[in-house]
Design a protein around this nucleic acid. Structure first.
Lengths: 335, 335
DNA sequence: CAGGCGTTAGAGAGCGCTCTCTTGACACAA
DNA sequence: TTGTGTCAAGAGAGCGCTCTCTAACGCCTG
């Protein structure tokens, strides 16, 4: 069974009574083939159930028609409860489907895993590489770019390598969130920040600081890592250090969700005593108690845009170094 | 840049002063190479930064060292809020990493997408195919199996093709859940069932019916599709049709979550008036109000086992037609 | 010391495809 | 009729690798 011979170009050519080259032309859509011959070839392809051997094609064209999407394995854990991880994949997948290219997904967990990613991508086994949710200043994207391998990352890269990226407007979203609380009379607005080795964490904290500073309000900061657990811990710390707080901006919905519960356990009412705003607009946000006001980011679109940029790059076009996607404040009951 | 010549076997051979065949032996770990020569080759490989061209290798070995994971695109939407989708990917990824194989992810949304999957997988561009979360009786797994292409699916396939599968013990989990409610005195236990074109939906309903029948209790059934929206609607219907109910088993945590809210809105207290049990044990389950009692399924392990089975199959071993993974009742406050 | 054997390295074919170059056919002008 | 130009189709090289077959070499045996 395993040796079931698949028909080759040769076989199709023989059946259609033409040369290999002509079959290749038809299969690849060349225009310089007379109609009757094209038809004969098409028929032969159908009759034989011919499918081109991609390995053979890649060998000569130097293209693989596949691109890699690299994510830290932690992303599947940290984000396991929201749609960031599946959302990006969905967006990438949609665009690649349209371009008839394959998606090779690489979750880099261990250092060994990272090395494997490096070997694979630098080995030019893919036509381009997408990086999502980078932690810290990974040198790999820069290395690939220098090798001339098309790369696009999500979020402004922390290193100094000039790698093209697509990001959402963190600062704009956070500003809208914090202003919303200020406008409704809050004056002691704290933040539960995200991890400071990720752009999303850094930018969202930056937005918070700028906005409260602008309004002449104090900075009340506790740092989490985007997870619910860290959100509970941070909220508890904030309540101890700043019991007077009347608003909380959490850098992720997961942390906001945990904060909601912690506040309730501490006897604070939301939104009467404390307003809470999150970031992400995960599906759960509409089902928390009370429903969470939050900043929506276009996550599927992020995946799509990254992919489109990468494909353009791979096609030899020059692309914008940075693309920024808008965020939007979704008002529910928590603030 | 794009034409930057990568070193070939030939180049390594020249540098090491040996033949191509010998370099190939060293690279592929053959034992029949004398130590000094092996060392010389290894050094040449390092110096030149040689990376084998996978396309060329595939062309002759007829292997691709990559496997496809096929999911309906809906899976990323329906499950966007729980860990099924990322969990399976993580499990698959872990095992493939250990085996040094690549993961090609295919989300089949449209009929065109499904056709693309069919073309790609039947074209033997991968060494094996994993199917997750099948809807209905997709003929593709059976077709591939008949072509001699290694296939493993998640969940007992609904068609009659004898395709090897890995599944969790739905019935066992549901039985434990419903018995738990019976044991605590509930006598009017309803279910919010999952979609009846998916094994998970069918099996969980089967488990419910068997257990209530066994206890001489009535069947109170409303069907949803695993999403929160459908869960709310189903819960409302149940309250109208069976206002006397004192327990609800929801076939997914998402539906259970929505039921919790709907019950509260209807003035029913959980668990005092109505006990609620879900299925999946998503992370949110621990954060609902009240925290949700639910059935945990080992989702990462599911991905891992599927992959291990597939790799064994691809290696020519014969494998069990069915593998069943245990489920476990997690008791929290809702029942 | 011839003959046989086991072991290691090289030679060379060929995997299935694309793409350049060449040939062939035909139309039209001189 | 011959020459020129245009366009479609074929011939053939070669992409980088693996793997079989063969050659070379050293060692043991009779």
């Amino acid at each position: 069974m395993r040796t079931a011979q698949r028909p080759t170009l040769e076989a199709v050519a023989a059946r259609a009574g033409v040369s290999r080259a002509t079959v290749s032309r038809v299969v690849n859509g060349s225009t310089t083939v007379a109609e009757p011959i094209r038809e004969a070839v098409t028929r032969a392809v159908a009759e034989l159930g011919y499918v081109p051997n991609l390995a053979a094609r890649s060998l000569v064209t130097q293209r693989t028609d596949s691109i890699a999407l690299v994510m830290p394995e932690a992303a599947t854990r940290v984000f396991s409860d929201d749609q960031v991880f599946p959302g990006i994949i969905r967006g990438v997948s949609q665009e690649l489907e349209a371009a008839d290219k394959q998606l090779v997904l690489m979750l880099a967990g261990s250092p060994a895993g990272h090395h494997r990613v490096e070997r694979y991508t630098t080995g030019r086994h893919v036509d381009g590489v997408l990086f999502a949710s980078l932690h810290g200043a990974d040198p790999l994207p820069g290395t690939l770019a220098r090798l001339g391998i098309p790369v696009v990352v999500s979020g402004r890269p922390l290193g100094d390598a000039p790698v093209p990226y697509v990001d959402v407007d963190h600062v704009g979203g956070v500003t809208a969130a914090v202003r919303h609380m200020i406008d409704s009379g809050r004056r002691r607005i704290a933040t539960i920040a995200g991890p400071q080795d990720m752009v999303a964490g850094i930018e969202r904290l930056r937005g918070y600081r700028a906005t409260v500073a602008d309004a002449g309000l104090p900075e009340l900061i506790a740092v989490g890592d985007f997870t619910r657990e860290s959100g509970s811990a941070a909220m508890r710390r904030l309540l101890i250090e700043h019991p007077e707080l009347d608003g909380v901006f959490a850098a992720s919905d997961l942390m906001a969700h945990a904060a909601l519960r912690t506040l309730r356990e501490a006897g604070r009412r939301v939104p009467e005593d404390v307003a809470v705003v999150g970031f992400d607009d995960i599906e759960t946000a509409a089902y928390t108690e009370p429903p969470l006001t939050t900043v929506r980011q276009p996550i599927v679109e992020l995946g799509r845009r990254m992919t489109r940029q990468l494909l353009r790059l791979a096609a030899g076009e020059t692309i914008e170094q940075a693309v920024m996607l808008p965020t939007e404040l979704i008002r529910r009951a928590s603030a």
